[in-house]
Design a protein around this nucleic acid. Sequence first.
DNA 1: CGGTGCGTTGATGTTGCTCAAAGGATGTGG
DNA 2: CCACATCCTTTGAGCAACATCAACGCACCG
Lengths: 235, 235
Amino acid sequence: MSSSKKMCVSLVPIFNHLEEEEMKKIVELSNSKKYKKGEIIFRSGESENHLYIVHKGKVKIFRLTESGKEQFIRTMESGDFLGELSLFTKNKHNSFAEAMTDVEICVIERNDFQKLLYQFPAISLKVLEELSSRLESAEKLVSQLSSQDAEIRVASYLMELVDIHGKTEIMLPMSKKDLASYLGTTQETLSRKLSGFQQKGYIKQSGQRKIHIIDMAAIRQIIGSRDLRCKNSSR
Amino acid sequence: MSSSKKMCVSLVPIFNHLEEEEMKKIVELSNSKKYKKGEIIFRSGESENHLYIVHKGKVKIFRLTESGKEQFIRTMESGDFLGELSLFTKNKHNSFAEAMTDVEICVIERNDFQKLLYQFPAISLKVLEELSSRLESAEKLVSQLSSQDAEIRVASYLMELVDIHGKTEIMLPMSKKDLASYLGTTQETLSRKLSGFQQKGYIKQSGQRKIHIIDMAAIRQIIGSRDLRCKNSSR
DNA sequence: CGGTGCGTTGATGTTGCTCAAAGGATGTGG
DNA sequence: CCACATCCTTTGAGCAACATCAACGCACCG
């Protein structure tokens, strides 16, 4: 119990650089909770009073679109923290968190966390870093979504995965259904696009989530081809 | 000169709560710069070594879409700061900043700013707050963009402005061109949608950017009408 | 004034959403 | 261990929304 609490604290990048003693203090403030796959951890509209730290498992964060569709925002894995937004602004949650697998989470009270920030400025810096990078990826996502072309979005995403994995064998980190939502399209369209790529020999799908990239150049072409469609004459 | 520096520091929410003396220190670290309307303040890809604080005027932040289109991210006005991302992660800029009007900006060196954060934990908290709320609006934007329907996006945006202004007379904070980009659509579509609303008597446009909301209820209808379109039979 | 960029409107084509139906994959309980 | 339920995935067909192209009116600026 206490050990799993300790695990949490020592896991998270925002804490794990602290001295033994300081960590101990934090451990005392934290609580451990478990959720089964599919359980909702919090709902949009609920008021936020905690910092959640994912200790074990995977959590999916999503919103509901104005028009009622589920919009996948991101996944959180071991070491990630969430609930950060309302920690400072006293707002309500504006998104949902659902356990994608069985999950263990450590929880710290809002007020306690704020005190920690005052006590240990270094923590603030870590949190800042994390928020910055999260903001960055959110803005990147925005930029991708407004690329009208679903094909380009899919292609970009594949390239992104290649970069992350560092090889041409990639695994989708979520179901195609969720991925479609993340990319701002539908399951059907995503499925068609991938099948299309496969037919043209750009990729090879195996199993549910494994994709082998065969012709990177061709895929890059797609991304950079905003006016190929104009007419083949002009360029 | 020095007075305009001081203005900057006392303007920004992240600093203006500090003691006179502390501010003085900060003033010493800052520099003032001016840009003419249309000038680029920084470009995507340039490395980031400064915190910019907008003192006077308006700045537009945008990215270039994978497909080469301009994607409007946000505007920054007096008191807002930017350049925050790379301040912590040592990255390159991933967006462009362009002066929408003549602009005065205060600049602080990256390293100096980091020192400030260590010295005054309260600053970190302010920055955290700001980043949080920025992240929130980015995620909201994501959620809106993936609402396939441009009409809904336009309607939502109008309602948002009404909330902000607190009245039914609203001013667009940017050109329709930029707004279209922000909403992930084109000038033409935006123009048509607005004309459409006007024809149905929901709104009244006057001048370039002034809009009077007449029938809020109708507009709210649009937003919540994900399956009205099924068949006209239902209404 | 001519020039440049923004805003509007019209016509046309295409992407990708919707609905529908059926084939895997996975899991649950008998 | 099998039968059944559920969820994810794939494929098909039709249609509406929206991007694109094009042309013109309008404002702002030198």
